[in-house]
Computed example of a mutant assay.
Amino acid sequence: MISYASLLLSNQYLRKNLSIKKWLAQRQELTLTYHDGPLNGQSSAPLNYHIFSKSTRELGGFEPEKLNLMEQHCDWMDGSMEIKLNFHITGDDGIFSVESGDLQNYYGKDYPLKPALQREGRLYTSYQPQLIRRIIKDRNRLIQNSSNALDDDWVFDLRDLISNVISLVEIAFTQLYIKAEFDPLPGWKFSKDKLGERHARRTKDKFKWVYQITGQQLNIEAEMPSFDNLRELRNHLMHFDPPSFVITIEEATIWLNQILDVAMILIKMRLAIGVAISKDLINMALQPEAIFVPGDNTPRKPIDNSKNENYASSIWPKK
């Protein structure tokens, strides 16, 4: 994954489209100079695939500031205006209000919503970056505190994490649909007859939106079993139909690792639609795998999902 992340970063920052093999053969170091923003007039550290790989491996993730780089992201997916108010002011002229016009910049002038905050609270124009960081933090916390995995709180925290992961994918599809409807990128097609309504759609129909809008294939066959499993698990944990639930720590380890496949799905989605991959999304995919370590050396048999045992014993039989 570090090699793949380094490939993404090399192509994205150095504006190339090379394979890992070609990057490995290239030792030339390049620098970027910024002409606006907080790094105006400054140059990046020397860059190539090997430098991205070394930095990512040593830091355990991608930290652009360590290479004197500005973070790259997709404005309409990751751009998030965050406002906090801890007061409410009224007067003869009306009510003090903070209003965001960012969404018109992201989704076009015809986008009908302008979020406004008039009293104590928070305003977000996008919730995707915050949710990615929350998923990273919660997944790491569950692994670090796996000694408490038999406690109710640990199980409920895992439930929340799985729900957030599926919500993150649904948010990305919603943003893609809205962008295509109100402010499509060049070459995109939007047909409500083909796409259907955003709401009450099967998830597998939403995956088709990428090709129907952009003409690009997702190529996520390897990752889809993980997503399908987490989606079914989310539905069970949210609705508890059936009301029973069995969790084994071995299966929880599998679920925690399937989250990394969902990160890959979101990365491939961005590659297909041709937008920047955020630092947070790369770091979500770069999280280490969880490993189940039993408490004793008792001989164990592998989990057999085809049998009515462990988690499978607490759900309706598959048709």
Rank of each mutant, 00 (worst) to 15 (best):
V165Y: 01
P317H: 11
I132L: 11
L123M: 12
E63F: 12
G94F: 06
L271D: 05
N40I: 12
I162K: 06
F227W: 00
S44H: 09
G61Q: 05
E289W: 00
N86T: 13
E289L: 13
E82I: 15
G41R: 14
S163Y: 11
I162T: 11
I2Q: 10
I249A: 09
S163V: 13
K109N: 07
I247W: 09
K208E: 04
L67P: 08
P243Q: 07
A285Q: 08
Q144S: 15
I89R: 05
V262D: 00
N219Y: 04
E289K: 03
H236W: 08
L8N: 03
H73P: 01
P225D: 06
H236A: 02
L142I: 09
F96Y: 07
D241R: 14
V165A: 13
L176C: 09
R270D: 06
G41H: 09
P243H: 12
I220G: 02
E181P: 00
G274R: 01
K22I: 06
S97P: 03
W188D: 00
G196W: 08
P243G: 08
F292D: 11
M269Q: 14
H35V: 06
G79H: 10
R139A: 10
I95F: 02
I277L: 10
D157W: 08
T203A: 04
G187H: 12
N257Y: 03
H50C: 00
K318A: 12
K137V: 06
E170M: 04
A276E: 12
L18K: 07
E232W: 13
Q42A: 03
P112N: 14
L30C: 07
D280F: 05
N148E: 14
M269E: 09
S244T: 14
K114V: 05
S191E: 06
K66V: 14
L39H: 10
L158Q: 08
K318I: 00
R122S: 14
F96Q: 07
R234H: 02
G41T: 08
I20L: 08
K21F: 11
S146M: 03
G60V: 11
T253H: 11
H239A: 05
D280R: 04
Q104A: 14
M224W: 04
L18V: 05
E170D: 15
H199T: 15
I259P: 01
E251T: 13
G121T: 13
